[in-house]
Amino acid sequence: MPMETPAGPARHQLEMRLGALLRLGVALAAAVVLSGGVLYLARHGMDHPAYHTFHSDPSSLRTLPGIMEGALHLREREVIQFGLVLLIATPIARVAFSIFAFCHERDWMYAAISAIVLALLLYGLTSAA
């Protein structure tokens, strides 16, 4: 009986492309975080750090619309946070592309499984909506 491989040649090539996408996402996120970090240290480097006790951040750092708005105004903490959102979005995008890949192969079962994973990831983000 021929073995069915988890990754056929076409599938394999697609996976490698997705791998490149992952690395691109991480590189982009790191660049944004670094830019925000330089701004942050330039403007607040001499401030006293306040990470010793937990105080809930302002909503501009906890919600996607708040982060987007602050980043557009080049507020340094929001720029860093936007980079971190890009980072979180990278594996989520990967799962989303997997749905298309499985559909393309007419592998409906694994397209559905990927869709469940994507739904869970998006649900996790709803607390930051």
Partner: peptide
């Protein structure tokens, strides 16, 4: 990465991701 993204989404909404600290760590 996918597992971590699921938890990180919740952390973001709860305010556990402090940009000033996460920046040098990441």
């Amino acid at each position: 990465g996918v597992t971590a993204a699921a938890g990180a989404g919740v952390f973001l909404g709860r305010g556990y991701i402090e940009p000033g600290l996460a920046m040098p760590v990441m």
